[in-house]
Simulated scan of single mutants.
Amino acid sequence: MLIGSAAWAQSSDDVEAARKKKQEEERMNQDWACLKCFAEANSKVVPPAAGEKRVVFMGNSITIGWLNTVPEFFNGKPYINRGISGQTTPQMLIRFRPDVIDLKPSVVVILAGTNDIAGNTGYTPVETIYGNIVSMAELAKANKIRVVLSSVLPVFDYPWRPGLEPIPKIAELNAKVKAYAEKNGFVYLDYFSAMVDERKGLKAELTYDGVHPNKAGYLVMQPLAEAAIKTALSKK
């Protein structure tokens, strides 16, 4: 009886996993950039109040992970999270207007690139990833939004796509983004240096899978993000 119950539970899990996979595939076919993901939430965002210094966080699972892991970081602050798990820079670029510009922030914090390197939406060279990040920054600047460009976090290997050897690509992308930020008066938010281990991966105590921060990881990131936002707001 127990064996039968275990088998039924396993079968039920497989069915649910297959259903979710099919649902995600259908969504990707119909709404590749996930423009619908925040459409309802965006419709409820009112213009900033007088003196409000709104900040939008644009990114992937590491960005949305703030809300799941350390939600108190956002509590009582004019912060809006627009992270979508698994997203790459072309997807973010497509949704940048509705999910950032139209929300009228004073600052945007962009964290992007790791999923491109992991090949989530196919092969993308570093130069193209960089170009997409630059395009988002330039859109923000054109709309009088101050820009914080985050480094990609260190990764030794992606568990869902092992063997890609991401270390040199992450280093190249971070160097390009840092140089671009410095040249254009944007703020470079360096998570990498505070979180890297001797293998050039993410410190074991700061992650649960080698890619995504755990609570300890976000607690390292929090003061760095706050300092970067403060610096961006001080710029004219």
Rank of each mutant, 00 (worst) to 15 (best):
D197T: 13
F156E: 08
L93G: 10
K235Q: 15
M28V: 07
T231E: 15
T121A: 13
R199L: 07
D14G: 00
I229W: 00
P47A: 10
K104F: 00
I167R: 09
P105D: 00
P105I: 01
V148W: 02
E40Y: 14
Y158T: 05
Q222I: 08
F96W: 02
G76F: 13
Q222E: 14
R19K: 13
Y123C: 00
N184C: 02
K104R: 11
M92Q: 04
S11F: 12
M1W: 10
I80T: 04
W66I: 03
P223N: 05
R19F: 15
S61G: 13
V126D: 02
N81Y: 01
N120D: 09
G131D: 05
P223T: 04
K230N: 07
R97T: 10
L206S: 00
G86A: 08
V107P: 11
V107I: 03
A204Q: 11
L164E: 02
T231Q: 15
G83C: 06
V55I: 02
S11R: 15
K203P: 05
T128V: 06
E226G: 07
K22Y: 06
L219Q: 15
L206K: 05
V147A: 03
F38H: 09
N143G: 11
L139A: 11
F96N: 00
S12L: 15
T63V: 09
K235G: 11
A39C: 04
S150C: 14
Q10N: 15
M58E: 05
A39N: 12
N143I: 01
W8M: 11
S43T: 14
S12H: 14
F74P: 01
V187W: 01
T128C: 02
E182M: 10
K215F: 04
R82N: 04
K169Q: 08
M28E: 06
G4Y: 09
D157V: 02
V134G: 06
A225M: 12
L202Y: 03
K230L: 07
E24V: 10
S193N: 13
E52A: 12
D31N: 09
V46K: 15
G59L: 00
K20I: 12
A171C: 07
A6H: 14
V15Y: 09
V134N: 00
H212C: 03
F73G: 04
I84H: 00
T89W: 01
P78F: 12
V70M: 10
V56W: 01
A137V: 01
I101F: 02
L206E: 03
K77I: 08
P159Q: 12
K230T: 10
K230H: 05
V152A: 12
T231S: 13
E40L: 10
M1Q: 11
K22H: 11
R161G: 06
K236Q: 14
A228R: 05
E52C: 13
P213T: 05
D102A: 09
V148R: 03
T128E: 07
